[in-house]
Design a binder for these strands. Structure first.
Lengths: 160, 160
DNA sequence: TGCATATACTTGTGGTCGCAAGGACTATAG
DNA sequence: CTATAGTCCTTGCGACCACAAGTATATGCA
């Protein structure tokens, strides 16, 4: 991550000010949030993301490719991340009957209760550190501004 | 990094919307910016940060501790990052005459011209991908909102 | 049918980084 | 002048992740 000139004193360019704060805020938030997630549930933020995706998915199952598209990870990252979740018994691998290339990741019962618990506490944490610092209108405005920034084009994911 | 539910369709909680966009924007921006920095100058964003710090420092020299406080890295990270920059000849190590514990990192001539060039192109990139997407007033507002979010407390750095 | 191409996934390799422990040195107190 | 504690830096270790190459399967087309 980057921060450039972090002592605000000598930063004159307003874009730079915003950019530096953006980077700082991201570092601080993700560091704190992932520390809590790790301490309370033994999950990384990526783990959490994948589990949440599965939680929302039909039958709590997804193809690995589709997970990769939703989460900010590469296909290889997904493979190894799921390896870990499988070892922990939170997720199981299931073959696809119609296409032997694909394998589904499905949430186990343990995984379901884990993500249910983590969802609540993580949601509360995000709210405490992020949401509660802003008025409702400001949150909306922030979301709108952020929405205008570039998007990831990992593969033409998103939308639909 | 985390993203939670990235298909905006099912995200109802407004805090969550803002948070997801925040994470997505960060991932997209840092990925693109570091790719450009790498391609054009062979630098990571952390490299750039450290060089910029040195560039702004008195005599283009800083104690390693102070670099760590300014940049979003741990002391150990700084050590290894500077190892790399030293191997590339961009930075040199200099002992401190009054305190044998500390060693300074100082910019070489090569480092100076490298960071001078990188500064311009990186600044332009940040502007293109980040600054230019927002009106001046919006930039200010964004900076203000981001400034209200938690800060890193690596050591009571910042300010003054 | 048979071959080229595309897709889904895995694995090898290497880079980056944080944490914890250690070494070297300094400062403070008795 | 020791003993203790604090500071600065480095190193061992492990976690995470991207990229590229490899395997297995599917699909399109001659």
């Amino acid at each position: 991550m980057s921060s450039q000139v972090l002592t605000t004193q000598e930063v004159s360019n307003p874009t730079e000010v915003a950019w530096v704060r953006f980077l700082r805020a991201h570092a601080a938030l993700t560091r704190e949030l992932s520390a809590r997630l790790e301490a309370e549930h033994g999950l990384t933020m990526s783990d959490f993301d994948v589990l949440i995706q599965l939680y929302h998915a039909e039958g709590h199952a997804m193809r690995r490719v589709d997970i990769a598209r939703q989460v900010l990870l590469t296909a290889s990252g997904i493979t190894r991340l799921l390896d870990g979740l499988e070892r922990c018994g939170l997720v199981e691998k299931k073959a696809c009957p119609s296409d032997a290339r694909v394998s589904y990741a499905v949430l186990t019962d343990a995984g379901l209760s884990k993500i249910t618990a983590a969802r609540d506490s993580h949601g509360a944490d995000v709210d405490e550190l992020f949401g509660s610092r802003l008025e409702p209108k400001e949150r909306e405005h922030l979301a709108e501004l952020l929405g205008r920034l570039p998007l990831l084009h990992t593969s033409e994911a998103c939308s639909e």
